[in-house]
Design a protein around this nucleic acid. Structure first.
Length: 866
RNA sequence: GCGGGUGUGGCGAAAUCGGUAGACGCAACGGACUUAAAAUCCGUUGGGGGGCGACCCCCGUGUCGGUUCAAGUCCGACCACCCGCACCA
């Protein structure tokens, strides 16, 4: 028989799907009575080409989409492009391509690759975020947020790359260096646009509790990122005359330790530090030194606490006669709390390190349980555990919690402080001094200040004629683009030349997919029908940024009445990557896998260069990346084995949340299964003439049972995201089929095979969709597998007919008994006790107890007769 | 430092509710087919020991302890590795 020709067969079925538009999701209005299911993979950044690592991501989403379609859902499974971003501008600078041309070329390549994979996408909904029809509507949403005060401009400290002359996002700073320029990043104070995500801090934490189908890990990461804490904000009055401030406001979570205070310290970026620097050269020098370190070298300098004693003094809030020195300290962060603290060295490790270095007092005020107040002292380790307040006036004797409450009550009573909740989360800085992004739709007028661009003038379109021959923002130096008129007074005005962070683009694209052709940014009817996304799939690297921003924007839009859903993603799955061994020359140069030959030599695996035989060093399996050259292209695999085999392999070899290592043996194994399945369908004879079933055949019954067990197991495996276990069942079933060959089979057996092949074709559809169609057509299935209903199983048939029970004597397995399913425990007990092996192990022992767990096990407890 | 996770054969893994550990795949080895190779098919494959043999025995899920008739699974302590955050007052 002819070998299965994957390449031609796959192309044929893709054309059929395309032509019959089987993956079009219905409009909300014409959805009918079916339940909806929205399956979405994080849309890709069009950076170049897909490698097989991407295949896994989209194949998993496709399994879900195809499965749910077969289960009777209206399925929305769209695709688009996260198309704005730095890489396009970098390509423009390096190679002279226009960012738009570079991006569109990449999209064309990657779209073709995705289509090659046979992913069941509704391509009629495709868009790219760099389309004016998308970002223009994003501008409208931005103006709505601006109208509601959720978008605002403020002075902020930002990461400034002095070489590229632009702000960088935190994620674009690595070890203190700009990721592209390699220059040390500075902190600069600039006026930037922010989105008020902190307004939603509590709401975002509370919402996490409802996300039961999110990984615990991601929920914890978001909660930590938001970082809610409660404590006391209070003001220390300045006692020094002619100081640049009357009071210093600090935040503390440990107001119970106020009597252990030995200093007050402010951040180098604190306004008081600025004011002191203006009149004190030494202070100025210290502040400058801290600022040079930047945000990120913090890690390196973490051990080294540095301070500058300002000479100012403040009064202790509960004892005006007690004076504390004021320091500027490098470990205080301006953007957390109030940018100022009081130091209690005995009960905070950082304060203790600082106090030891500068010889400040260390006075314990929390007594650990069972410690002696006369002798308890803090040496090198601050005491942060529970205990009772002492050396603390009115707080003495109180536990930590009660003392905190009492200190807050006293501060509030005295009018010097307030109990507050503080968040680590900061407002989202969205300004980028970049060309390839969504223009912020406002104009700056000398007379009218900031004016939103009127809605009927949207989109504010990026100009195409820009230059990249010098660093900085091409929009700002464009000769005409920014010059416009003020929409309010009609006078000359300038457009905002900053563009929006690309994370804004990805914060609502899933809403736009519900009706990408609507005039309004979001078609409420469509969004309310499809939202929330039932299953979102992507890498864990977006656990905080994208997934938090999208939750925030969805909430903000829900509060605006644009959509019902407050949570965008009801279910989240973070899938593992595809890894591959790395190969390098002795000299260290990375090598492509296709240039290397790997052979097993006894225990060891050795590699050499195909061309020259030069020995090659085999490295660890790592995430596929261009730089390490350990990439496998989907086209090559499709050519050699077919995309079904590739899809099968990346899902069969590891649990979906874990990484999977791409190996030649693995893809070959998957390819073997494809061929074995095809062989089973191809060798199936035509159905016997009706009614002519012939004599019953026990193997026919066994096959039917195996088939129904497979349906049950695979259905459950897909629902639980255990694709690898499900596929293992398919392997086992195919092996069963192979042991009841069609050649020379009885009519009853041929009929049973036909009965089993029909569901099998549909069961493999989510994983190997092309093969499924070819098999379905071979046995004369009606229509397409892509449109066929998922097979149902008969619970009676799926259940085992005979139970095989292990028999233990004193917890050790000694024998096995077979008895009909549903047999009484008594029967199992009798059978077990009669077993020859069991009797041998019971020699000289008295049976004390027999435990029978029906369908599971028999355990005989026996001991020596006494 | 804080938080989360993982640890089972040569390798990827399975065991879904505390009930026969290692399903399924890869690799390896032996055999069939072949002039030969590839492909395909059959068999073996956790470690150790015994038996001509059907088989039988001991050990075994990172370590140590506990609960239980029974522990990969539950509890306690620890070790190793991975990921995230990291001077957050």
């Amino acid at each position: 028989m002819a070998r299965y020709n994957a390449k031609d067969v796959e192309a044929k079925w893709r054309a059929v799907w395309d032509q019959r538009r089987v993956f079009r999701a219905p409009d909300a209005q014409s959805a009918g009575g079916k339940p909806k299911y929205y399956a979405l993979e994080m849309f890709p950044y069009p950076s170049g080409k897909l490698h097989v690592g991407h295949v896994r991501n989209y194949a998993m989403g496709d399994v879900i989409a195809r499965f749910k379609r077969a289960r009777g859902f209206n399925v929305l499974h769209p695709m688009g492009w996260d198309a704005f971003g730095l890489a396009a501008e970098n390509a423009a600078m390096e190679r002279g391509d226009h960012p738009r041309a570079w991006t569109e070329a990449n999209i064309a390549i990657m779209r073709a690759q995705l289509k090659l994979l046979g992913v069941s996408i509704d391509w009629s909904r495709e868009f790219a975020t760099c389309d004016p029809s998308y970002y223009g509507r994003q501008q409208a949403l931005f103006l709505e947020l601006y109208r509601r005060g959720l978008a605002y401009r403020k002075d902020g400290l930002v990461n400034w790359d002095p070489v590229d002359q632009t702000v960088l996002a935190n994620e674009q700073v690595e070890n203190g260096l700009g990721w592209r320029s390699g220059a040390p990043v500075e902190r600069r104070r600039l006026t930037q646009w922010f989105l008020r995500i902190t307004d939603y801090a509590d709401d975002l934490i509370e919402g996490l509790k409802t996300l039961e189908r999110w990984p615990e890990k991601v929920r914890v990461m978001q909660e930590n990122w938001i970082g809610r804490s409660s404590g006391l904000r209070l003001t220390f009055a300045v006692a020094t005359p002619d100081a640049p401030a009357e009071g210093i406001e600090v935040y503390t979570t440990r107001p119970d330790t106020l009597y252990g205070a030995s200093f007050v310290a402010v951040a180098p970026d604190h306004p008081l530090a600025d004011a002191l620097a203006a009149r004190d050269a030494a202070a100025a020098a210290f502040v400058a030194e801290c600022r040079r370190g930047g945000t990120s070298e913090a890690a390196i300098e973490a051990a080294e606490k540095k301070g500058y004693c300002t000479g100012l003094e403040v009064k202790h809030p509960f004892d005006p006669s007690w004076r504390l020195p004021v320091w500027i300290a490098n470990f205080i962060l301006m953007d957390y709390g109030t940018g100022a603290i009081f130091g209690c060295p005995a009960h905070d490790q950082r304060d203790l390190d600082f106090a030891r270095k500068y010889g400040l007092p260390v006075k314990p005020v929390v007594l650990p349980p069972d410690a002696d107040p006369a002798t308890f002292a803090v040496d090198d380790e601050a005491y942060v555990g529970p205990g009772r307040a002492f050396n603390s006036a009115f707080l003495d004797g109180l536990g930590v919690g009660a003392a905190k409450a009492a200190a807050i009550a006293r501060a509030e009573h005295d009018g010097i402080g307030t109990g507050v909740t503080v968040y680590r989360l900061r407002d989202w800085g969205v300004s980028r001094q970049r060309y390839w992004g969504c223009p912020i739709p406002v104009v700056h007028c000398a007379a009218c200040d900031i004016q939103p661009v009127p809605l009927d003038q949207l989109p504010v379109v990026l100009p195409d004629d820009v230059t990249f021959d010098q660093p900085g923002n091409p929009l700002a130096r464009h000769p005409t683009w920014k010059h416009t008129t003020c929409p309010r007074c009609g006078g000359p005005a300038e457009r905002e030349t900053d563009t929006l962070d690309t994370f804004v683009d990805s914060s609502w694209y899933f809403l736009r997919f519900t009706n990408p052709h609507a005039d309004q940014p979001i078609d409420r009817t469509a969004a309310d029908y499809w939202m929330p996304v039932d299953q979102y799939i992507g890498g864990v690297e977006h656990a905080v940024l994208h997934l938090l921003y999208a939750r925030f924007v969805t909430r903000a839009l829900a509060d605006d009445g644009v959509v019902d859903a407050r949570e965008p993603f009801a279910g989240l799955f973070t899938q593992g990557m595809v890894t591959h061994e790395t190969y390098r020359r002795q000299s260290g140069e990375w090598l492509f896998p296709e240039d290397v030959e790997v052979a097993q030599e006894g225990e060891a695996r050795r590699a050499r260069l195909l061309e020259s035989g030069e020995p090659v060093v085999i490295g660890e399996a790592e995430k596929m990346s261009k730089s390490k050259r350990n990439v496998i292209s989907p086209e090559e695999i499709a050519e050699a084995y077919g995309v079904d085999a590739a899809r099968l392999f990346v899902m069969s070899d590891s649990p979906p949340e874990r990484n999977v290592q791409w190996t030649t043996g693995g893809i070959k194994g998957a390819w073997r299964l494809v061929n074995r399945i095809w062989e089973q369908f191809d060798s199936q004879p035509p159905a016997p003439s009706s009614g002519d079933v012939g004599a019953p055949d026990p193997r026919a019954v066994e096959l039917a049972r195996a088939s129904h067990r497979l349906i049950k197991a695979l259905t459950e495996a897909i629902e639980d995201f255990r694709f690898n276990s499900g596929i293992a069942r398919v392997y086992a079933f195919v092996s069963t089929l192979e042991h009841v060959p069609a050649a020379g089979a009885s009519p009853a057996l041929i009929a049973a095979r036909a009965e089993a092949l029909s569901p099998l074709a549909r069961l493999i559809g989510p994983f190997m969709p092309h093969l499924a169609e070819e098999c379905w057509a071979r046995i004369g299935g009606a229509g397409l597998v892509a449109e066929a209903a998922w097979p149902a199983f008969d619970a009676g048939l799926a259940a085992e007919e005979m139970q095989v029970l292990g028999v233990q004597v004193n917890g050790k397995r000694r024998a096995e008994i077979r008895l009909p399913a549903g047999a009484e425990g008594q029967a199992a007990e009798e059978l077990a006790l009669a077993d020859a092996d069991v009797r041998r192990h019971l020699e000289g022992l008295t049976v004390r107890k027999v435990i029978v767990v029906p369908g599971r096990i028999v355990n005989i407890v026996a001991s020596a007769a006494t």
